[in-house]
Nucleic acid binder design. Structure first.
Length: 111
DNA sequence: GCATTGACTAGGG
DNA sequence: GCCCTAGCCAATG
């Protein structure tokens, strides 16, 4: 497990229920801005139960993918109280979990 | 170490 | 709105 991967997983784990973060954001929080692709790659093989990978979505509030089970991801998000319309999250700007990279790792900051 | 792949992103047609 | 292209990064062979 690379430091970056662990970092990403840690960040995703800090995403509070009912909130979502984009791959780019997670990458930035993990200390590697622009590594959105890498983040997705890591998620692909890390369907950990401890990590709410379903809260990680694509930019613009799009669902992105979920190991080929996008419907499942949609259901999980809906279960979190979010509303999904097509491939987009409703009130995306509201539930977008934003936090500082320095703050994200080492301190859970909910809103 | 190089080449390929992929849950990405932004821009253009 | 969708499809394609270029840039990006980490993991894998």
């Amino acid at each position: 497990m690379s430091p970056f991967s662990a970092r990403v997983l840690a960040v995703v784990r800090r995403i509070p229920p009912g909130r979502v973060a984009t791959y780019g954001d997670v990458a930035a929080m993990a200390g590697r801005p622009g590594a959105s692709r890498a983040v997705g790659n890591i998620m692909r093989g890390c369907l950990h139960a401890d990590v709410p990978c379903h809260r990680v979505i694509a930019a613009g509030g799009r669902l992105g993918g979920y190991a080929g089970n996008v419907p499942l991801k949609r259901a999980l998000l809906a279960a979190e109280g979010l509303t999904v319309v097509g491939r987009r999250i409703r009130h995306w700007e509201r539930i977008h979990w934003k936090t500082r990279a320095s703050n994200a790792v080492g301190r859970a900051n909910n809103r």
